[in-house]
Design a protein around this nucleic acid. Structure first.
Lengths: 229, 229
DNA sequence: TACAATCCTGACCAGCCAGTCAGCATTGGA
DNA sequence: TCCAATGCTGACTGGCTGGTCAGGATTGTA
């Protein structure tokens, strides 16, 4: 009897459903392996894109035989989706501060700073996301049209509310978000360009802080946020 | 005697050097073929990236047999470089208006508008460029460190000069360029995200104009450009 | 027409890569 | 200790893809 039929692959474990008992008993092994694989896969997919990445390279980076990857993830595409899912959760966070009763200067400033920090600490995730987008977002179209759109619509209403209270200009908040996302992600996605123009071999923490503060200042003033001079 | 030895491939024709006479006589054939191939290659590379693109697909889109591609471009990498070279020239242009004696509001505004227009009309080129950057810019590192850096340094001095004359804030012009490039290119590179959030199936001319004017206004005010309210 | 230079292409090949599978190893509960 | 479930892996394969090549077709000049 082939073992395959009783396997439960990582990409299927999206809930605490009624998983066979034996699975739960050894789930620390599974969890450790899956974590290692996802980490290696993120790095390789970021560097080479989906087509350019090879399962062999991911396996080597994870320190596992290639066949072991296929034990946990049926296909390369399934592994890629898992990496994407893992990173998408990062993108939805950080907007907590944007609320009707918050101060625009503080909330927007903090949001931009948080985005910039996230981009710097999760460069590979940012690049995987960017790559997916560049090629038409075939795997995450649903996420964009649902979760993301809902979130942006909601936060846009907050910004409209701020404008109505005279705390800032009336603007199209959605395009403001596009600009913020683009301006922050460029330091991860287009790092070679940034480094080349700055004449540095790598982006230092200080340089990023400098960029962040200038960006915050420019955007706040650009939106006429009260208190930003 | 193999024909190969007398071939002159497209990627070698970078100057008006002493090319064999017979080449010049039929150069309209060569020119037409090369143009077709580059166009098809740009589209396919934009959609699939370097690794994901196949010579067969490019050939089909160009309406040529695959072997014919290899007649004009030795390798896939050579074809890719040619596409990149072709698009890089686009990126260096458009900065003519940024001069010491120009009006910042007019010059910067026009620059942003031009970038946005370029991005919209050359979406595939933008995506090929973005893809190259995402993967570490292995083919164009030299271009970034030389031509691009020189250009940005020069234009940054202009902006410093404007600031010194009190026409705008003192800012780090290089990061301003990063923001402008990112904010404009996002409408090409991340189009799926933009469309999803806006709830549209495609970006209309009107929507882009709307985005452009808001971006111009925000950046000019954000830099304290005199005359932008 | 003769001819050289260039253009063009079907057929082929070698290497790479995702995915498979049989069988062995390990785990942990009874 | 036994045993079922799960973990693990070397060796293999089929298909795809970049690249080659021999040889024929066109072009334009003399």
């Amino acid at each position: 009897m082939p073992v395959t039929e009783s396997l439960v692959h990582a990409e299927d474990l999206d809930a605490t459903a009624d998983v066979p008992v034996a699975l739960r008993r050894k789930e620390h092994i599974r969890h450790a392996a899956v974590t290692d694989i996802l980490g290696a896969a993120e790095a390789v997919f970021a560097r080479a894109g989906f087509s350019g990445a090879t399962m062999a390279e991911i396996a080597e980076l994870a320190g596992l035989p290639k066949a072991n990857l296929h034990y946990y993830f049926r296909t390369k595409a399934a592994l890629y989706r898992a990496v994407l899912d893992h990173t998408l959760t990062l993108w939805l966070a950080q907007t907590d501060g944007i609320r009707n009763d918050a101060d625009p200067m503080q909330a927007l400033g903090d949001y931009i700073r948080a985005k910039m920090r996230l981009t710097a600490t999760h460069r590979d995730a940012s690049r995987v996301f960017a790559n997916e987008m560049l090629h038409g977002a075939p795997h995450i179209g649903g996420y964009l049209r649902n979760e993301l759109k809902t979130l942006v619509d909601e936060k846009s209403r907050v910004i409209d509310h701020w404008a109505q209270k005279g705390l800032m200009d009336r603007i199209d908040a959605r395009h403001l978000f596009f600009t913020i996302w683009a301006a922050t992600q460029t330091y991860a996605d287009f790092q070679p360009q940034v480094c080349a123009v700055l004449g540095k071999s790598r982006l230092t923490r200080a340089e990023l802080d400098h960029a962040t503060e200038q960006l915050v200042r420019m955007i706040l003033r650009g939106c006429g946020v009260r208190g930003s001079r």
